[in-house]
């Protein structure tokens, strides 16, 4: 018997948690691939979106406002990197609530919660497949865009990785809060379109924040997505994490404050559902 296993083939706590997280990842992958039409159509839509912005960018000339720290850049480079990266915000917000909602609708939530698996592990692992898939989709997205002129040769991969992690860490708590809301109210809330709407309007996804009125620029500064997009544009232009430290620090603050709050809220929602006997309701 393996040194890491104990009686009945059970693993030690750390190894067991990895195994559980992997099992949730595999489950979600299998479920996603059991709908092949939906799976493959999503790839076609990616190519369509890149092409749409490629032709739209021909209407807008290069500008310093699109570039990082005053360097001139095309609108195509600006918007493609932003849209690619905002996918991670979307998936961070959607994946947890969708996983909980799906288990509610399928009737499997009680069976999952009857296992000796901690709530944070169940919730956080339920986003693994979605994040992995999004990472691949974004890579394909950027790959297609590269064939149409997007330049990624100066990208600082370390900086990009740091801002990717920080984005997931900042936005996932919003998704977990949304999952807590679903556990309590049994319906999808407006979190996703509010977050995406704010990102599009105030986060600098479609146009630079500098074009907003001063007051809205202040609101924009508060949003993690603004700093995430600034960070990733900096990374594409070769900036280091040190150069982007103010953005990174604000995102760390957001993550440290929001993550425990969201997990506490989710645990409270599960407790409420257990008291009301509505754990399996939908």
């Amino acid at each position: 018997m393996s040194a890491m296993t104990t009686t009945m083939g059970r693993a030690g706590p750390r190894h067991s948690n990895l195994r559980k997280a992997l099992a949730i990842f595999v489950r979600d992958a299998r479920l996603a691939l059991s709908y092949p039409m939906s799976f493959w159509l999503s790839w076609i839509s990616i190519a369509g979106q890149v092409l749409a912005f490629y032709f739209m960018s021909k209407l807008i000339g290069p500008s310093k406002t699109f570039g990082f720290e005053g360097h001139e850049s095309s609108y195509f480079d600006y918007v493609i990197v932003n849209l690619a990266f905002v996918q991670f915000q979307t998936v961070a917000i959607q994946s947890f609530q969708r996983a909980i909602r799906s288990d509610q609708m399928l009737g499997t939530l009680e069976a999952v919660l009857a296992t000796p698996t901690s709530l944070p592990l169940i919730v956080l692992s339920s986003g693994l497949w979605a994040f992995a898939l999004t990472a691949v989709e974004v890579a394909v997205y950027l790959g297609i865009a590269s064939t149409l002129g997007l330049s990624l040769v100066h990208t600082n991969l370390a900086t990009a990785a740091v801002f990717l992690l920080l984005t997931v860490a900042c936005m996932s708590p919003v998704g977990v809060l949304s999952a807590a809301s679903i556990m309590t109210f049994k319906q999808l809330g407006p979190t996703n379109w509010v977050a995406n709407g704010l990102a599009m309007l105030l986060g600098g996804v479609l146009f630079p924040v500098s074009k907003l009125p001063v007051l809205l620029q202040g609101v924009s500064w508060m949003l993690p997505i603004t700093h995430a997009l600034n960070g990733i544009r900096g990374a594409v232009n070769g900036a280091t994490v040190t150069q982007l430290a103010p953005d990174a620090v604000w995102m760390v603050v957001c993550a440290v404050v929001l993550l425990p709050i969201s997990l506490f809220a989710f645990a409270a929602a599960v407790r409420r559902a257990k008291l009301d006997g509505t754990l399996g309701h939908y």
Binding site: T5, K20, L31, T108, T115
Partner: peptide
């Protein structure tokens, strides 16, 4: 309740999932 398994997975895949959540593996 009949709806406590994933309908689009096989019995084996369901058992692998719930077995892993019970701490079993390999």
């Amino acid at each position: 309740e009949e709806r406590s398994f994933y309908f689009r997975l096989t019995a084996r895949e369901n058992m692998e999932f719930f077995g892993a959540l019970a701490g079993l593996g390999g």
